[in-house]
């Protein structure tokens, strides 16, 4: 069978920071993709869903900066201000739109629970970033095609989505341990990889020899 059944979550987000790992300096960049590590963490925390998930933002966002100061509670002083990039809706959009996919077999029973549910995604939640609403949940069938991947997904979870690397671009995503205290960087497929995958996860369909 050349199709896969998925649960497609339509998200609307006010503003969000999914930080990059770079820690140097007082300026924090942010990503414009939703790594599977981030969305899986959020689904687990807010809904108790332990399932592979992938996602991406649609072209409804732009970057802006937010400056804040971290407080040292012990010394009761503020540290140097830190500026972080964040995503905000790109006019005329009022919200950032994103799509998240869960395997239908793992999320079929959650459809009603997830519809209109609210949760937070990414960093600086205490400052109000990452407030997200699942405005729609659809069961979809996506055809498996060759193309260029547009999501970041753990390599070990890619096969569950029937993502088969033909020529992969690798990077690392952080996988917390079961206590969410420590963790390890796991190899992941990054956007740009040439794959066979559900076409909803492709930036473009391609016709290369394999």
């Amino acid at each position: 069978m050349n199709r896969i059944k998925l649960l497609e979550l339509h998200l609307e987000i006010d503003s969000v920071i999914i930080g990059e790992r770079i820690k140097g300096g007082t300026f924090r960049p942010c990503q414009d993709t939703i790594p599977s590590s981030t969305i899986e963490g959020a689904l687990k925390r807010y809904f108790g869903i332990k399932a592979p998930a992938v996602g991406f933002f649609e072209d409804t966002y732009e970057f802006d900066e937010f400056t804040y100061s971290v407080r040292d509670k012990m010394l009761n002083i503020s540290k140097l201000p830190i500026t972080t990039l964040y995503l905000k809706p790109k006019p005329p959009h009022k919200k950032i739109k994103a799509k998240v996919y869960i395997l239908y077999s793992r999320g079929a029973g959650l459809k009603d629970e997830l519809k209109n549910a609210k949760f937070q995604l990414g960093a600086l939640k205490s400052k109000g970033f990452g407030e997200s609403e699942i405005v729609n949940v659809e069961e979809i069938e996506s055809e498996i095609k060759q193309g260029i991947l547009k999501v970041k997904v753990f390599e070990v979870e890619a096969m569950e989505f029937r993502i088969e690397p033909i020529s992969p671009v690798y990077g690392y995503l952080f996988k917390p341990d079961r206590f969410s205290i420590e963790g390890v960087y796991k190899r992941a497929l990054f956007p740009g990889s040439l794959v066979k995958a559900p076409d909803v996860l492709l930036k473009e369909v391609s016709f290369y020899d394999e």
């Binding site: 033909i166 020529s167 992969p168 690798y170 990889s193 040439l194 391609s206 290369y208 020899d209």
Partner: peptide, 10 residues
Amino acid sequence: VYRKYLVPEI
């Protein structure tokens, strides 16, 4: 016609 990525071993 092939598209490939040559990547360092990680």
